[in-house]
Amino acid sequence: MGTVITVTSGKGGVGKSTISANLAVGLADTLVKSEKKVVVLDFDIGLRNLDMILGLENRIVYNVIDVMEEKCKLSQALIKDRFSKNLYFLAASQVQDKTVLDTDKVKKLIDELREDFEFIIIDSPAGIESGFEHAILTADRAIVIAVPEISSVRDADRVIAIIDAKSLKAQMGDEVDKHIIINRIKPKLIEKGEMLSVQDVENILTLPLIGVIPDDEKIVNSTNTGEPIIRKRKTPSGDAIKNIVSRILGEEVPFMDLSSENRFKTFFKQWFN
C-alpha cells in the first residue's frame, strides 16, 4: 500500500509545485533500485503548472478529470517521466469545472494508485476551497510549505488547522502526519534581522520541520527548461530537497546550516580585503 503525501500551503506562489516535482523525482531516483514506483498528481484544476516544471507539457493526452469521468483508463493517463523510469505524472485538466471532482471519485482514483505506487505525491492548489479539500482528503502525510513572510506563515497556520478536519484519516480517528518545509530562506536577511528565522517560523507554527530550503536563483533556470533542480549537482536548493527526500524515507539527516555558507563567504571577503 502506497503512502499519499499532499503538498500544500494555503498561500499561492510559495513553491508547492516546484517542491512536489522535485520530491517526486528525488523519491523515484532513490527507490529506483528497489523497483518501487512514484506518481505525482496535479490537483490544481484549471490552472495546471506541474507539467511545465517537469518538462512533460507536450506529452499530456488525458488528465486526472478524464480518469475520474472514466473517459480513459488510468494507465492511459499516466505519463512516464523522461529520465526517471519509475516516475509517473498525472496532469490536471485545463478546463475549469469545479463540479467534476467529487469525493468518491478522488477516493477511488487514489485507492487504485495506492496498489501500484510506493508514493503518491499530490500537488494541492492554493487556497482552502474544494480543490484543496480533495487534495488533502486521502492524505497519509501532509507537507505544508511556508516562506518566511507574514502572509505565508499566517496562511500556513490556517491550513494546518483544517487539514485534519478535511482528511479521511482523521475521520477514522487517526491523524495526518504533518510537517513543514520552510522555503526561500535568505540567510543574509535573517542575519540582519530583516527576515523571520527558521526558528521563528517553526515556533509559530508548532509543527515539526522536515526541511529548510535556501532561496536559490538557479530555480528560475530549472523551471525555464523544465528540468527539476534536484537532478543538478551542487545546487543549494536541490541538495536541501535531497535531504528532505531522505527524511521522508525515514533517515535522520541533520538540517543544513544555512548560515555557514555565509560565514564562508565573509571569511573570504575578509581575507581578500
Partner: peptide, 8 residues
C-alpha cells in the same frame, strides 16, 4: 534558458 522558457 530564458529562450527555452519563451519557446515552451
Amino acid at each position: 534558458s530564458a529562450n527555452k522558457a519563451r519557446e515552451r
